[in-house]
Design a protein around this nucleic acid. Structure first.
Lengths: 217, 217
DNA sequence: GAAAACAGACCGAACGTTCGGTTTGTCTTG
DNA sequence: CAAGACAAACCGAACGTTCGGTCTGTTTTC
């Protein structure tokens, strides 16, 4: 975390161990939920000893904190890649492309990539726990708001709202809100296969309120 | 729950005790989250003894089950009342009313009444826990699907989609999904006061896809 | 007086944390 | 460059707390 020191063999090993523990924590959050993501479970999933875990993360809170940073790094990196590919598509296809279909595909990609993954589900578990855990809330709040800003900036590079950037922020916030809500709504449905239909219908309603940004501007 | 026996003094008292415990459980879920909604916490919040709690609910699962039914009863009753008032408004104001504004008000009412409450937050906690708790999932699944059907029928009585009732179900499912997602998205916002703005902007996007049903049909 | 309602002591399991001891890698010194 | 000093990595046992569940009494209701 704080030591991007010389890449000695020890530092590399230590870094790898910490990463392994974070990955195991993500898996534990996904499979068992926040409350059941116990130290013992993470230890078991990581294949490391109890003592090693304790050594790298003196408390569970510190492990959670590192896991959150791990999640954010992955999410920001993934978003950057997606935005780059969108920019490329917009540059080649230009304005002739079918915008509703394009936006629908973008929504589907965002939903499945961000939320239909182990990492996405782990983040939801943490978000929910944040509501009732003040310590966790204080830990996450600044990170989440920074993340929100980064996402808004990224989307502003490829999309446009006629009402201005503030509206674009709101509209894309609505999209993310909806995607997250889907994770809870699927409990109401008889068939999980209806979810893509929900995403498509949603994208259809939102598409007229946004437009692609001219990449040559 | 299952005993609507003769209203002797004892049965009434028993019923009241069970309700008190369910209410305390809802409060515990709201304040502390699913995992921390322990038997001891419910006992404390209800002001009853451990023995009394155990007497009325032999296991925690039974308490959760009763609490879920308690929540659903309240939600279905509240929805029925809201729909009745909407029907009345539609009958008097008729088709001259400003539909987007009307729908916006309906969305705001649904959101604040269903989700900005102790009961709404408690249900979210249960929904999230359901994802990783198989026993809870089996318990809730039939109830949730019945609930979904009841809500769809209720909305179908007052609203209409040009694409038919199946589409209406999807669109209103999208709305509920969004409302639920707001509970998680507020963590990303600096100011919780932006939430109503989100609801209004969302309603604005959805309104053109629905219309009020003629109450005289 | 029988049964339901209530009260509280008690149990084993699992939790997060703490701690003393061992091994391994790195740096310093002669 | 080999030896010793040192710190980080690793290990598993033990602690106190809290969990849900059980069990034995006491009081209230019928």
């Amino acid at each position: 975390m704080n030591d991007a020191h010389a890449p000695t063999r020890r530092n590399l090993k230590s870094e790898a161990a910490r990463r392994r523990l974070c990955v195991a924590m993500v898996e534990a959050l996904d499979r068992h939920g926040y409350a059941e993501a116990s130290i013992a479970r993470v230890q078991e999933l990581s294949g490391m000893s109890r003592g090693a875990l304790t050594h790298h993360f003196a408390s569970k809170t510190l492990l959670i904190e590192a896991t959150v940073d791990h999640l954010f790094e992955g999410a920001v990196g993934g978003a950057a890649k997606l935005h780059a590919s969108v920019k490329a598509r917009l540059a080649t296809e230009g304005r002739e492309a079918d915008w509703p279909a394009f936006f629908k595909a973008y929504c589907h990609a965002s939903w499945s990539r961000i939320l239909e993954t182990m990492e996405g589900r782990a983040l939801i578990e943490i978000l929910v726990a944040t509501r009732t855990d003040d310590e966790l809330r204080d830990l996450l709040e600044p990170r989440l708001q920074r993340w929100d800003a980064a996402i808004s900036d990224g989307v502003a590079q490829i999309f446009l709202s006629q009402r201005g950037d503030a509206d674009l922020r709101v509209v894309w916030g609505i999209c993310r809100t909806f995607f997250r809500g889907l994770m809870l709504h699927e409990r109401f449905l008889e068939d999980r296969g209806q979810l893509p239909e929900f995403v498509e219908r949603f994208a259809e309603m939102v598409a007229p309120h946004l437009q692609p940004r001219d990449p040559n501007a």
